[in-house]
């Protein structure tokens, strides 16, 4: 098992290498360039040229890429063209914000989606089954930014129950050793801050969780229905076990296998969803940062951000593969 994990991690190197090349070419094929974002309407041929030269963009692409790789190898992601801040510094702030939001969303999707799917399967063709099918159809087809706006309008603007933007109230003083604000509040044992951070998390996390929740509920339902008809479930019933034991030990343990796979696939969805959700709720995460970077053709930020998105995706799929081995004894990694 450990050998398998190490091998997967070693494989990361060529993957990241290829990815860096793809990202590099991709961001440079975007229309416009940083000089247009910087100069706007006042751009002249000469000033644009000067800026391109200043940023090293006048060099041939292979040379630029070589320099980029060299910096990358020493952990230098470059600096934002617009703010002149090192990409790494900003990433340290924003990466935890996105991860905190994403994990909360996934947790909401799991905690609600799995029981909902299970109940729908138990009430197959009943009211709850049809209701959850309808709800998840709406959940899947509702545009995430629209849902985010509606949530914000109802719960923040009209009812005033929850804050509408940001990660924490500006008046609360909290040191940020990890930049995971919930963790920071626990470290500081500042419960007032903890509750406030949680309140800020609720709306964006719900907006981000809807699609994964709907998908997880549907997959759970299908898996439970299938497993319930398996011969070994009949065997378990023939043993005289209590229905709750049959469900827990025999049905759910098997039904979780496809669900885990789907959870892994949701990571990508969460990350793209984060771009929209973070924008609506002014969440200072990687998503809203990237959106700005695209607008400004901020090459260094885009390259850094996309690489980190890729890293998250790769790690979450590794995590899924590992947990698969624990759930399914027929899979053993050598």
């Amino acid at each position: 098992m450990i050998k398998y994990i190490v091998r997967r991690l070693v494989l990361l190197v060529p993957i990241l290498f290829g990815l860096s090349l793809l990202v590099f070419v991709y961001v440079r094929s975007l229309p416009g360039g940083p000089e247009i974002a910087l100069l706007g309407e006042r751009a002249t041929e000469q000033s644009s040229e000067a800026i391109r030269k200043d940023l090293g963009l006048d060099q041939p692409l292979p040379v630029q890429y070589g320099r980029y790789l060299k910096n990358l190898a020493s952990g230098n992601f470059g600096s934002s063209i617009i703010t002149r801040q090192p990409v790494m510094d900003e990433l340290k702030q924003r990466f935890p914000a996105t991860v905190e939001l994403g994990i909360t969303a996934i947790l909401i999707a799991l905690i609600l989606g799995i029981p909902l799917g299970f109940l729908a399967a138990k009430r197959y063709q009943g009211f709850l089954d049809h209701a959850s099918l309808g709800a998840s159809l709406i959940g899947i087809s509702f545009p995430i930014f629209f849902l985010a706006l509606i949530l914000k309008w109802i719960f923040a603007v009209k009812l005033g129950w929850l804050p509408s933007f940001g990660r924490i109230d500006a008046t609360i003083d909290l040191p940020h050793p990890t930049n995971f604000y919930l963790l920071d509040a626990i470290i500081d044992t500042n419960w007032k801050a903890f509750v406030d951070v949680l309140k800020h998390l609720i709306l964006p996390a719900i907006a981000l969780a809807t699609i994964p929740l709907a998908i997880i509920a549907r997959i759970t339902r299908a898996a439970v229905l299938e497993v319930t008809n398996e011969d070994y479930v009949r065997t378990a019933r023939a043993k005289g076990l209590d229905p709750s034991v049959v469900d827990r030990r025999h049905v759910m343990k098997n039904a979780m296998l496809p669900v885990v796979t789907v959870i892994g696939l949701q990571t990508g969805l969460i990350l793209t969803g984060a771009v929209l959700t973070e924008t609506v709720f002014a969440w200072p995460g990687v998503g809203s940062w990237m959106l700005n970077a695209i607008r400004n053709a901020d090459y260094a930020v885009l390259q850094g951000g996309i690489l980190f998105f890729a890293l998250i995706t790769i790690f979450s799929s590794l995590l899924v593969d590992i947990s698969y081995a624990f759930l399914n004894p027929r899979i053993r990694y050598q």
Partner: peptide
């Protein structure tokens, strides 16, 4: 009574045992 006083064996031993236990 089921499983204690009356027990049953099924046709296909390939599918009648739980694969993850």
């Amino acid at each position: 009574i089921r499983g204690k006083d009356i027990a049953m064996i099924f046709q296909d031993p390939m599918t009648s045992l739980n694969p993850v236990l």
